Amino acid sequence: MRKRRTKVACLLLSGAIGIGGVGFLPQAEASAAAKSSGTTSSKTVPQIIAQVSPSVVGIIGEVSSEYVDEWSDYGGSEDGYELAHGSGVIIRSNGWIVTNAHVVDEMENIQVVTSEGKSYKVREVYSDPVSDIALIRINVTGFKPVKFVSSNEKTLVGEQVIAIGTPVSLSLRNSATLGIISGLNRAAGAEYRLIQTDATINPGNSGGPLVNMRGEIVGINSMKFAAVDIDNTGFTIPAGTVQYIVDQLFKQGEVIRASLGLGLEESFSATVGLPSDDPLTVTEVLSDEAAAAGVKEGDVLYSVAGHRITALVDLNELMKTYSPGQTVRVLMQSGGDIVERKVVLTSE
């Protein structure tokens, strides 16, 4: 919540703020494009909602004591209670639910409310604020898990999608809004690429699913831009990133990311979103492994493992395919010379 607001506020210099949806400010028939890719569906919007909605839950809890003052600055709760809420989606039949990290990180005594109105206490929480993904578990079995899209490459701009969640109030849980995929591979101030949608995402929708017309989860809704003259500009964490994070949380309870061990800076063009082939500049050598490879402050990074890198978010995406301890080849400019170095990846 707090970290998400800071990040997006820095991005939107026109005065817009990002909202994630924890109850306050921080949040179809297949399209012609989808048909051209060979993905068609005979299901209607009501059929898709009926299929997925039973797997979507509301999440509510008390605001942690250390965040009460900050939370109150953003309006608090309409009913006077210091509560926050969001959304989640069931991914395992034995009670595992995925949501946003910012939904649960500053909550205590968290409860899950199912579509039929049953309430369960959350027993376990695993959170990754960097990706804004969290796993929570309730001690109940027999749930119907959702199905994620097999590959985000199947998600197309213009494809019709449905957002399901708990906007504004827990009494509005399992509300659905309809829209399209507005854009793909958006940076939007996040660590990883996001999906942009015009399906309405209101405070409280965070952690809920964005669903395609095959009933598959395209991603987990995370934030939106909100300001005068800005309408329906929401962002969703793609299914591929969600599954990458969830797999690590299941295996080890945390996300262990591979890193070059370098502080890097983007060019001005990349920072403001202009098309750019400019490389990254090394601002700091953070690991012994990078220093041993001969990397120095002021060097310029062009590519990693043959992949051209012009933005930090692209490097983060590439690092999802590696583990600490692996070695990668990097193409750099150092002291006026173009050189190739082998860097052993460290953990962040």
Rank of each mutant, 00 (worst) to 15 (best):
Q111L: 11
H85A: 13
K144E: 12
V112E: 04
E70V: 15
V113P: 04
V161W: 01
E78N: 05
N152V: 01
E108I: 01
P54Q: 04
G76P: 13
V157M: 13
P54T: 03
I164H: 06
R123G: 01
S87E: 15
I91T: 03
E82A: 11
G86V: 06
W71H: 11
A163M: 11
A163V: 08
E124G: 07
I110T: 02
Y67F: 14
E66Q: 11
E153Y: 10
Q160Y: 07
D105P: 00
I59R: 00
N109T: 04
N109K: 02
E78I: 03
V104W: 05
L83Q: 06
L156T: 05
V63N: 03
P54L: 04
I164E: 07
S171T: 09
V103F: 01
V103M: 02
A176H: 02
I90G: 03
V113N: 09
Y126V: 02
V161H: 00
R123K: 15
N174P: 13
S131P: 03
I90F: 03
E116D: 13
I138E: 00
E124F: 15
S93R: 08
D132W: 06
P129F: 10
P145E: 08
I162S: 08
V112Q: 05
F148V: 09
Y67K: 03
S65V: 15
E82D: 12
E153D: 14
N100E: 13
S131M: 10
S150M: 02
G61E: 10
L135S: 06
S127P: 00
P145S: 07
Y126A: 02
D69L: 07
N174S: 15
K121R: 01
A84F: 06
S65D: 15
S65Q: 14
S72K: 14
I138Q: 01
S171Q: 10
A84C: 12
L156S: 05
Q111C: 06
V122W: 02
S150W: 01
T141R: 10
Y81K: 10
Y67D: 06
F143I: 02
S72M: 14
D79V: 10
R92M: 14
G86L: 09
N94H: 13
E116W: 06
D73G: 07
A84L: 10
V98R: 10
E159A: 15
V98N: 06
H85Y: 09
L135P: 01
D73C: 12
V103D: 02
E82I: 12
V98P: 00
S171K: 09
G158A: 14
E153W: 07
A163S: 12
G88V: 04
G58K: 00
S77Y: 07
R137K: 14
E116G: 05
V56A: 05
S171M: 07
G117W: 11
S131E: 06
I91H: 04
Y126F: 13
I162T: 11
V149M: 00
L83K: 02
A134T: 00
L83H: 06
G80P: 06
V103T: 04
S65Y: 14
I90E: 03
E124L: 15
V57I: 07
L135A: 07
Y81M: 08
V104E: 11
V161A: 04
S119V: 15
E62H: 13
